[in-house]
Amino acid sequence: MYRSLLYVFLTGLGLTAGLLACDTPDPEAVTGTFVIQLDNVAGNQNLQLNTGTYRNALGESFTPTAFNYFVSNIRLIRTNGADYVVPQDSSYFLVRETDPASQRITLKNVPYGDYKGVSFVLGVDSLRSTMDISRRTGALDPGSDHTGANGMYWSWNSGYIFMKLEGTSPSAPVDATGSNTFRYHIGFFGGRDTRTINNLKTIPVLFGTDVAQVDAEKVPTVLLQADVLKIFDGPTLLSIKANPEVMISPFSSSIANNYAQMFAYRGKTTATLN
């Protein structure tokens, strides 16, 4: 009896010591998860590659065949001003219309708090665009699938394509394969040694009066829509007829100015944990 009491006492002592040793706060205890769900649309219609036909403000009808873009350098805007910046190394996402999983961006280790908006860079910043190859893995790996419609990297003019929209349109001229295609590949991070144009856009999207709460019980999902019509119908009206192909050209800046306005907040849902 006496001996077992001693054991109980010592057990208590040991556990207390253990708890004291753990005094530094467990990061998991104060961070949760935040989800950004992207939805690509054309005006008020859902975007359908290869089958949907849409019309821009100039009256040109078109059918998109590929739509991809990079979302990077995500910052979650807090109501109290203490924004949360997602760590650089885990802040690059390649969103492809053909890959629904890529449209759901799950951010872990987000500090508990109230968030009223998000901002991100559409594209790949100049620092990362010129970083050692070992620091460019995952979506940034220039050795991953960058051929054909998936291609988001220029190997002969080192740099990423920030936004790619391809499609067919009666307004586009007939190409070598006999189809009427248009192709917009927009990149340019400002140059490494020589200053070039810079099409990087930092895009804030505020949640209006909504507040997305992250805490031990709540995982918010905010829904952001990207509207391809805005790529045509922005500050500069983009005509497929006049510009069926825009890649390495100064006009790419006008398209970048247009797509900087293609995102909109469309609401949120909140999942409750246990």
Partner: peptide, 8 residues
């Protein structure tokens, strides 16, 4: 006991 403390 110590192991438990360390793991936690």
């Amino acid at each position: 006991v110590l192991f438990g403390a360390v793991v936690s």
